[in-house]
Amino acid sequence: MSPEPPTVLRCAGRTVARYTTRPGPAPHHSPRPYLHPVTTLAGRPVSEAVPEDHPHHLGVGVAVPDLAGHNFWGGRTFVRGRGPVELDNHGVQRHDGFTLRDPDGFVEELSWTAGGERLLREYRTVAATALTGTAWALDLTFSLTNVSGRDLSIGSPATNGRPGAAYGGFFWRAPKEAAAPAVFGSGAAGGGPDADGEDAVHGAAADWVALAGEGWTLVFAGATARTREDPWFVRAAEYPGVGSSLARDRRLQVAAGGTVVRQVVTVVADGRLDRDEAAALVRKAVTS
């Protein structure tokens, strides 16, 4: 991949994100398109890329640590019985082109390749919508179709033997600050008590989860019934990040020609929202 200028995403007349389609080569990164920086309407950064603690974290995007044994996440690969291991198994998400591009969003086609083989075709839709004078929503939908001609499966460190590490799918790396962000979530999908704290929210299939930092709040919501079934992967104390878990207890099977679709809508707000404010903005974002 050769670097090219980022695509600008605008909302309410302001630049709120930049999208890098062809990042330059970097060791152990599993090159892939990503959004960064993402900001609030007031211009406060709410994403991070290539941080010192996890240099393979690239802003906001889609990544999986194990697709048929290939690493599309970056960094080391968790191997059962061995732990994290540096392997020469990194795949590439190649930007093939935009099928639609407007100031407030785009539709992109990508190829997920490894070892010279195209495994998945992805259609990614990204859209920015204004909610209030201090909040906007980022809608990210990805559709992964198995074009390899054989059955594939998606795994995670959890399915490979590392408890609590079922990351893979949508992922948002937030900026690390002096204090860890507050974490809270809605009731579990299908009904259940509200949750507070990283331990309570991590691994839950909640309707939405929130990170509240220094002058900003991110609220992540599954926008379809199938997306809401995926548990959330949440980190706050070690580093701030939220993602989906496509493979928590078992590998996600993707038959030849089969397609996996997920949609996550993220409220990006200035200030620290409380639970009621977060819930109200999620309702507006998901139905708008």
Rank of each mutant, 00 (worst) to 15 (best):
A182Y: 08
L273A: 09
R226K: 12
D270G: 13
A212P: 02
P55D: 00
G116N: 04
T113N: 03
H70I: 08
V62M: 06
G43D: 01
A279E: 05
A68Y: 02
E4M: 15
S245I: 09
D270T: 10
R82Q: 15
H95M: 09
G241V: 12
C11F: 09
A280K: 11
V209D: 01
E214S: 12
I154Y: 03
R228L: 13
G190W: 14
A179E: 13
E48I: 14
S111D: 13
R76C: 00
F170Q: 04
A269S: 12
W136C: 11
L100W: 13
A221I: 09
S186F: 01
N160H: 07
L218T: 04
D104C: 13
N160L: 08
G241I: 06
T266P: 03
H202W: 12
A127R: 15
W73M: 06
D53P: 01
A247H: 14
A279V: 08
G203I: 15
P5R: 13
G97M: 07
S153L: 08
L281C: 06
H28E: 09
A178P: 11
V8S: 10
E52K: 09
W172M: 03
R150E: 08
E4W: 10
H28W: 11
V126C: 12
G222Y: 08
G75I: 02
A63S: 15
F72K: 11
A280F: 00
G271D: 11
A49Q: 14
W232V: 11
A127Q: 15
V107T: 12
S47L: 04
A165F: 05
A179T: 12
Q253S: 12
G133S: 11
S288Q: 11
T77D: 13
A221V: 13
F233S: 12
R101S: 05
L152D: 02
G243I: 10
T259P: 04
A174H: 03
P157M: 11
A206M: 09
A188I: 07
P231V: 07
P37K: 10
V60S: 13
R226E: 14
M1L: 14
S153F: 14
P37L: 13
H202S: 15
H202M: 14
Y34M: 07
T217P: 00
H202R: 06
G105T: 03
D230L: 15
P84N: 10
D276E: 13
A130L: 11
L58E: 02
V46F: 01
L273Q: 09
